[in-house]
Design a protein around this nucleic acid. Structure first.
Length: 362
DNA sequence: AACTCGGTCAACCGCCGGGTC
DNA sequence: GGACCCGGCGGTTGACCGAGT
């Protein structure tokens, strides 16, 4: 059953607000407040505006102490970290930024920060999914790819960039909730592209997922405790990233990048041909060898935890607080929800946020 | 000068959840 | 308990503007 509109669209004015309308609204609210009823407010003032429009105008523009534009680097940091943590909950993010509105933060993210962080190459990758889909033999394939939330993918990518990709890969609880078809495709892709690791790390196909995860987690945990971060070479990481990229791009694709801080990654085809050749050209033996070495507690060339963080301007100033910045999806996603990205309550968020112990005051 | 293109941002749309009757 | 109302929210749209050709 549809909901009745809050006002008659034919009788209300739409579009940009005039200075006179602004003055009327501001003067009234300054004197009498909103009266707790935005719907009735425009009639009281004599404005031919929808109550929602009045509310939006007040909150986003007329309200005292509103800041527009000129986001500081610190604000960038906050937005980045919170977006990775909780996604597109702009009102929650804006609440951490005095004088900023959710609309402002949302616009700023969509028009600037996202590009700054994710770079342009991914955009081309996304556009290719929606425009061409050689594997597609029907509507479902195409629509499913498109249905994969950009927000989820962005967070996935940011997380891959900022976190240990292996632990992410190995912990389904950290994955975004996908359409069943997308999930199937993801798992297929991971199996095809990453089976050597899976087989090596989890040799028994009879083992349950939980066991597999536990097995590997023990290995990782022991190393992480010593090193602060498990070590893998770039080629290994590329392999994993390629696996994930494979979800969205059926032929060749561009590995994850970090925008201005893009890693020197190569364009890899589905057939495993790497152009130009580098270590990833033979991902299987290389990775297996590396994993073997990893098991033997040897360290490889993957950038150190701190170095990795340092690649991202967004977090440069958060050194020292990174340890508290672990992906806490479990805090959110364990609750039953139809949309695991959105399942966290504000209270949960606040608790999590305290856990983060970020380098800024909240 | 005219046109195109891309970026920005204010405003709108529609859904959701809480409160009230 | 359920229908309805309203505020809040995130996603999207479209007007505007400046840079480039």
């Amino acid at each position: 059953m549809g909901r009745a509109p809050c006002c008659d669209k034919n009788s209300v004015k739409r579009g940009p607000w005039s200075p006179e309308e602004d003055a009327k609204l501001k003067a009234y609210i300054d004197h009498f407040g909103t009266g707790g009823n935005w719907i009735a407010l425009p009639q009281k003032i004599g404005l031919k505006r929808c109550g929602k429009s009045c509310r939006l105008r007040w909150l986003n523009y007329l309200r005292p102490n509103i800041k527009h534009g000129g986001f500081s680097e610190e604000e960038d940091n906050i937005i980045c970290s919170l977006y990775i943590s909780i996604g597109s909950r702009w009102s929650v993010i804006a609440a951490q930024l005095p004088g900023r509105t959710d609309n402002d933060v949302k616009n700023y993210w969509n028009t600037r920060l996202k590009k700054k962080l994710l770079g342009r190459r991914k955009q081309s990758s996304f556009s290719r999914i929606s425009s061409t889909n050689p594997d597609s033999n029907g509507v479902e394939d195409s629509s499913s790819s498109q249905a994969l939330s950009n927000s989820a993918l962005e967070r996935l990518q940011l997380h891959m960039q900022l976190q240990n990709p292996i632990s992410f890969f190995n912990n389904p609880a950290l994955w975004p909730k996908l359409h069943p078809f997308q999930e199937k495709k993801l798992l297929q892709s991971l199996n095809e592209s990453f089976s050597p690791l899976m087989q090596y790390a989890f040799p028994s196909p009879q083992q349950g997922d939980g066991q597999k995860v536990d097995t590997y987690r023990q290995l990782v945990d022991s190393d992480t405790r010593q090193q602060g971060h498990p070590k893998f070479s770039n080629s290994s990481v590329v392999g994993l990233e390629n696996s994930l990229n494979g979800i969205t791009s059926p032929d060749s694709y561009i590995p994850f990048s970090s925008g201005d801080h893009a890693m020197d990654l190569t364009i890899v085809s589905r057939a495993g041909v790497v152009e130009p050749a580098d270590a990833a050209a033979q991902p299987v033996p290389n990775f297996q060898a590396e994993f073997e070495n990893f098991l033997n507690s040897k360290t490889y060339g993957f950038a150190s935890h701190e170095d990795k963080i340092g690649e991202f301007g967004c977090f440069k100033e958060m050194n020292g607080s990174w340890d508290g910045m672990n992906w806490r999806s479990n805090d959110f996603e364990t609750k039953d929800s139809s949309n695991s990205w959105d399942s966290a309550s504000v209270l949960q968020f606040e608790g999590m946020f305290q856990d983060y112990g970020l380098g800024y005051n909240v």
